[in-house]
């Protein structure tokens, strides 16, 4: 079903649950994303797109965070079934 195909976070669809695999970023932006909970192994949810399609809102832990394509396209993930485990 293509469930385990690698994609960037930006390519996900609203409603998708995504297992973060790696981040192709560095410096302050990498630090910031890790601090917010975008860490390898975490499952985040694509909540919704803004009207112009960018940025996109993601649910991480119990918080919703909007990311621009610039960053979300650099985060590799896999689509997974079900809910965010700590919800």
């Amino acid at each position: 079903m293509g469930e385990h195909k690698m994609m960037s976070l930006y390519e996900s669809r609203p409603g998708d649950h995504l297992l973060i695999k790696s981040l192709r970023l560095d410096g302050a932006m990498l630090r910031r994303l890790l601090d917010l909970g975008f860490v390898p192994g975490a499952v985040v949810k694509n909540v919704q797109r803004s009207p112009m399609g960018d940025p996109v809102a993601y649910q991480v832990s119990r918080t919703t965070v909007a990311l621009r394509k610039e960053e979300s396209s650099q985060i590799d993930c896999q689509k997974v079934k079900g809910e965010i485990n700590h919800e």
């Binding site: 890790l34 601090d35 917010l36 909970g37 991480v60 832990s61 119990r62 918080t63 700590h86």
Partner: peptide
Amino acid sequence: VDATSLERNLN
């Protein structure tokens, strides 16, 4: 820390 969100808070 928030008891319902320990994982992120422990950072």
